[in-house]
């Protein structure tokens, strides 16, 4: 599974993307975020408040209860501010 981070999630976590194999009990995006918090203090800080975090799976916006597959591309980021 490829996990991408953008904006302040990227700077707090300290990398733009990682290739990960979460355990089988990590079923949806919220569970993935909970599991990621254990990887480093940076992950824990970036994902401390999930109400401030949005996600996309395979480049489509999803809610945090979206069910994940092993080869998904998962992106985590704050609400977008383009234009």
């Amino acid at each position: 599974m490829k996990v991408l981070y953008f904006a302040w999630l990227r700077t707090k976590i300290g990398c733009a993307q990682e290739e990960l194999s979460p355990p089988a009990n990590v079923g949806d995006v919220a569970a993935l975020m909970e599991w990621l918090k254990g990887r480093s203090p940076g992950h824990a800080e970036a994902l401390a408040d999930l109400s401030a975090v949005r996600a996309a799976v395979n480049q489509e916006f999803v809610s945090l209860d979206h069910v994940l597959a092993a080869d998904d591309e998962v992106a985590m980021f704050p609400p977008i501010t383009g234009g």
């Binding site: 904006a7 302040w8 916006f61 980021f77 704050p78 609400p79 977008i80 501010t81 383009g82 234009g83």
Partner: peptide, 26 residues
């Protein structure tokens, strides 16, 4: 332009005399 602002994944970081900060969604 309205739709793009809430659907295209861009993030703005502004730099002022106080430092750099990520812009929050309006």
């Amino acid at each position: 332009i309205d739709w793009l602002k809430t659907s295209a994944p861009f993030w703005k970081k502004e730099k002022s005399a106080d430092g750099e900060y990520w812009v929050e969604q309006e």
